[in-house]
Structure formats: C-alpha cells, structure tokens
C-alpha cells in the first residue's frame, strides 16, 4: 500500500492563546479530490499553509509523499517541493513578469529544461488552461480575474506536480467562469492523474469537483468521507452548509458521482 500523499498527524495550532486546531488528523490518498470545508475562522487556510510548509504547526507533523518537508538534505527537500503545486487565492502571479515568464519561472529555476523546451512547455501549459498564446506577453495587471486564475494554475502545474493544492479556486469568478474553471481542473485531474486538495466556500465547486469531503469544525476534522456520507451527518455546521436551500440546489444540479 502506498503512503498517503498528505499525512497530517496530531496537528495542533495555537495563535496567541487560542487553539485553532487540536490533535487534528488528515490523510489524503493518491488520486483523491478532497474538499476541505468549514466555517470562517475554522483554520482551513491555516491547515493548507501548514500542508505546504508555509506555516509550522505548534504540535504534530506533516508528511507529503511519506517525507517531511523539513527533513532530509537540501536537494531532497527541493525535489519534494517540485512534487506539489499551489494555486493561491488571488493568483499570486509575479506582477513584474509577463504571463510567459510567470509560467516559465519554476522551469527555469529547476534548471533542467533548455530554453527551447521551456518555450514549448509553456505553450503546452497555456493550451492546457485554454489561454491564447498571443496573451503570453501580457503582464498580470492587464489580465481579467478569470485569466489570472488560469495563468496561476498553469504556473502551479508547470512542473507537473502530483499534488495540487487550491485555495478558494473559484472565489471571485462569475458562475460561468467558475464552471469553466471547475471543468478545467477536472480534465487536468484526469489527464495528469493529480491528487487535489481544495478549500472552498462554493458548494457548486465542491459538488462538481470533490470525491471526498473533510469537514473542519471544533478544532479538528469532524468527518472525512464521500459527499453523501458527510451530508447525512448530524452537526450544526453540516446542517447549515449542505442542507440549506442553497446547498440543496447546488447538490441537485451536480448529482454527486455523476461525473
């Protein structure tokens, strides 16, 4: 049996005197699309940042692909970091670089591909996220919100990671764009065999993407399982989140498992 792609054990996070997480456990197996949901302030983004090593939890340990982000030598750590990509909520594109240079950046940093290969790979990634090659010379400031997200996704996928982490992938996109983005992520998931972890508030996104849902409440993972199983749960947050009118509508429109 493979080691889980993400393995967080006994995580405790303390900001000042307030415990955000306590003895939290989360495992994600390869090929899963896990949606992390929870009320605002429940520490979803914090958990995501701990996953990628931007924050160190007060207690507990995080392992990706069976390896610790802080263990091993420099080269091992660097190679481990190439195995996952993150899409930030606002894209976090380097505003001083053009679209092309943004996507080429991780490839150039890795120093393996030749300049011509980088050009071809960037063209390929742009085609993947359905952006015209003619837009490659634009600066991030000249792009629309939806395009920023797609370019950021192309950058996160530049090294074709096995794990993709999405922080609010559809926040700030109109429903049409957001649907397009969801389809895109699903296609890429199929094509590249990605494991995806996403944080979202958007039930449409969740229903259309997630194969698994983890509910973050009361400082721990309250439940982790397929969407239907989570919906049956008896908890005020789940009640409010899934069984409200809005939730019913979204879930009816994207019958889970249909994709």
């Amino acid at each position: 049996m493979n080691a889980p792609v993400v393995d967080m054990r006994g995580i405790g996070t303390c900001f000042g005197r307030r415990w955000v997480h306590r003895d939290l456990n989360l495992q994600v197996t390869a090929g899963e699309m896990l949606a992390l949901v929870g009320g605002s302030g429940s520490g979803k983004t914090t958990l995501l940042r701990q996953m990628v090593g931007l924050l160190t939890p007060t207690q507990g340990q995080v392992r990706l692909f069976g390896q610790s982000l802080t263990g091993g030598n420099r080269i091992e750590r660097r190679l481990l970091r190439q195995r996952f990509g993150m899409l930030f909520q606002h894209g976090a594109l380097f505003s001083a670089f053009s679209v092309f240079d943004n996507i080429a950046f991780p490839l150039r940093e890795a120093g393996v591909a030749s300049p011509e290969e980088i050009r071809d790979l960037v063209a390929l990634k742009l085609a993947m996220v359905e952006i015209d090659l003619a837009d490659a010379r634009h600066m991030p400031a000249e792009l629309s919100g939806g395009m920023v997200k797609r370019v950021a996704l192309a950058r996160a996928l530049a090294l074709e990671p096995e794990l993709l982490i999405l922080d609010e992938p559809t926040a700030g996109l109109d429903p049409d764009r957001s649907e397009g983005f969801v389809t895109l992520v699903r296609d890429l998931h199929r094509q590249l065999g990605l494991t995806v972890v996403l944080v979202t508030h958007d039930l449409d996104t969740l229903a259309a993407l997630a194969t698994q849902v983890a509910v973050l409440a009361d400082q721990r993972i309250l439940a982790h399982g397929p969407v239907e199983a989570i919906m049956a749960l008896d908890h005020p947050f789940v009640e409010h989140f899934f069984r409200g009118e809005r939730g019913q509508r979204a879930l009816a429109a994207n019958a889970p498992g249909a994709q």
């Binding site: 050009r119 063209a123 003619a134 094509q191």
Partner: peptide, 18 residues
Amino acid sequence: REALDRVAAARGESLPPQ
C-alpha cells in the same frame, strides 16, 4: 501515447515575437 499526443498537439504554435 497520451502524453506524447498532448505534446504533439501543441506543435507548430510559436510565441508572438518580441
């Protein structure tokens, strides 16, 4: 084959010249 097809499909496109 799928991986090679993807690369093959993107051929012929070139970046707009600076």
